[in-house]
Design a protein around this nucleic acid. Structure first.
Lengths: 340, 340
DNA sequence: CTGTTAGCGCATTCAC
DNA sequence: GTGAATGCGCTAACAG
């Protein structure tokens, strides 16, 4: 029941603790014979070195942390998948923290990570995060950090992002090309980098268009019912928007729900395009045109770069700010159709 | 840059290390004045105790591990969300490990957890897991363990599951009631508890029905394209099944994809019901009838019970095997309709 | 109420 | 090649 440790192995083998330690770590100073004996016994007893002891001793934990706003979201779960794939290659452990869009939680988590618990961390900010002292504190403590997706330019740290403004411009132009004249933009509240990027792309496309209608921007929340209410109001305006660009997956879903409820036909009366990483978007009624982010790759890249920092390798210039490209998938929710 | 530690605080305050340690942990033996002084300085310097040192000393890590087959799946991400909510209440850290349905990875992960890295662990088996020695080893090492969803009766450990057989019986009867006469059952391969439970419910419903057709069982894989191929073959049989019961979310999605491809009308030519925890199932074309599992609650319960074990509290008899109820959501993919 | 001392289990000097 | 001794940073037992 009590865990075996080096001391027990050493006693059993009539060796010194240090010899056993070295043998297990394949030190060149140890004879093959001794290594074999030691390993055989370790194997037999299922010896597993105590990670806290070696972390304490070596000042490294073989652990990284990922701080996310939420996990019930295809984007973030795909990111996690990517992160984990790299961590597994490196035999690292992964701690996961969910802020639920709460700055205070984010702050507390970062505080807990400030003393050796992890060798590095990756973060995507909550939408209530307005200052970055908590991250600065970790940075100053010397912890390797990578930001991804929801990042900040106010901190000098590597970031992995996507081409939010460009792809949003493209998505909005796509709607314009389909004949839309009153396009609404739905996003989560806050001053998130992705929100402003996506909004900028939307505004730029409107600006560039002949129509130049007043932008219709609605800020949403993390709560489905609240968002449906916001969307209901938006769609009951007169004149009604003829398109919605949802900057976040769940808002596209909420839009569909409200349209079903109000009997608004997509794409006849309203065209919809939304950010989404769900395979199921193609199965919606009608199939949803989406902006797909390379979520898995974001996770892999962010984690790879984190390891480069941990291993004190030099970062290439483009690795300090890596921009991956999203893709617009045109489907039936934006097809040109007769109004019903 | 160098982290502050108790020794530095003690020196600065002209106190003994142990006094500082006790003050920070609010020991009753320390005077209020000293506590205040210590805390003020600790606060000022942003002191955070080294977790490895205290874990080593106290033989506890304030960390639990969750071992999952995958995360890109609404069921598991909701479970994670539930787990995390409890862990956060307890101020515990959460390590996540993804087996990707690979027994060897599962085995390696468990091995890494066998020496103090975590205070407890939760696991849902991979579908390639056929023996449980790896878990037994952890159990014998005295690590608190809870199994959830994909569990095994071969090990005497607390399990949180859902009423797979009952709800599958109900789902199959639902299809029968809608007039289906050749119902196929799609599940992932392996000897998973959930697979056999769901299959048993399906078989029992067929058995009980007047029709008693030969069961149509198709085993699928983790690979979308392979599964679509399996489903294609199934749907090109003559006579063709008139219903599919998908025991796992992604297989329902694959079914829709194949139907779109082959021009098979749902629910006209084929009715579909699938396990799914996706909010978006209601937006499918047609909306998908689903078996919804209480995933978030599974996560919360599993984690709560794990903490009861960690805290050495007695488990109530029903906490050793807790069965939560799933719910059948009837939607358009199973409405009675004229064949096209 | 506070200080001294002794490890937790491991990796790393430094001896021999 | 191997062993003995030291300390990572913290907590706890024992004094006083």
């Amino acid at each position: 029941m009590d865990n075996i440790n080096l001391k027990m192995l050493a006693k059993e083998l009539n060796l010194a603790v240090s010899t056993v330690s070295r043998a297990l770590r394949d030190s060149y100073e140890i004879s093959q014979e001794t290594k074999d004996r030691v390993r055989a016994l370790a194997e037999k007893l299922g010896f597993q070195p105590n990670p806290h002891a070696s972390s304490l001793r070596q000042h490294k934990s073989k652990t990284i942390a990922v701080i996310l706003p939420e996990i019930e979201n295809n984007f973030f779960s795909q990111v996690m998948n990517g992160v984990e794939s790299i961590a597994q290659e490196k035999s690292y452990h992964v701690l996961i923290y969910l802020t639920h869009e709460d700055y205070n939680k984010e702050k507390n988590f970062l505080q807990l990570l400030r003393n050796g618990r992890v060798d590095g961390l990756m973060i995507s900010f909550s939408n209530t995060t307005a200052n970055f002292e908590h991250l600065e504190a970790c940075k100053n403590a010397g912890i390797p950090i990578v930001m991804f997706d929801r990042v900040s330019d106010k901190i000098d740290l590597p970031k992995i992002i996507t081409d939010d403004a460009e792809i949003s411009f493209e998505a909005t132009e796509h709607l314009l090309k389909k004949g839309c004249k009153r396009i609404a933009f739905l996003s989560i509240s806050g001053t998130l980098s992705i929100t402003s990027g996506r909004k900028a792309g939307y505004l730029k496309a409107l600006e560039k268009s002949k129509i130049k209608h007043t932008p219709l921007v609605a800020e949403c929340s993390p709560y489905d019912e609240q968002n449906r209410q916001t969307i209901r109001k938006l769609l009951q305006k007169n004149p009604r928007p003829d398109a919605i660009f949802a900057a976040v997956e769940k808002l596209a879903i909420n839009t569909y729900e409200v349209c079903n409820e109000l009997g608004i036909n997509i794409p006849g009366q309203l065209k919809v395009v939304g950010f989404s990483n769900s395979q199921a978007a193609a199965l919606f009624n009608p199939s949803l045109s989406t902006v797909v982010q390379p979520a898995y790759d974001i996770g892999r890249m962010a984690c790879s770069i984190l390891f480069k920092i941990i291993e004190k390798k030099m970062l290439l210039p483009n690795e300090k700010k890596l921009v991956l490209r999203s893709k617009l998938e045109e489907r039936c929710s934006t097809t040109r159709g007769h109004k019903l």
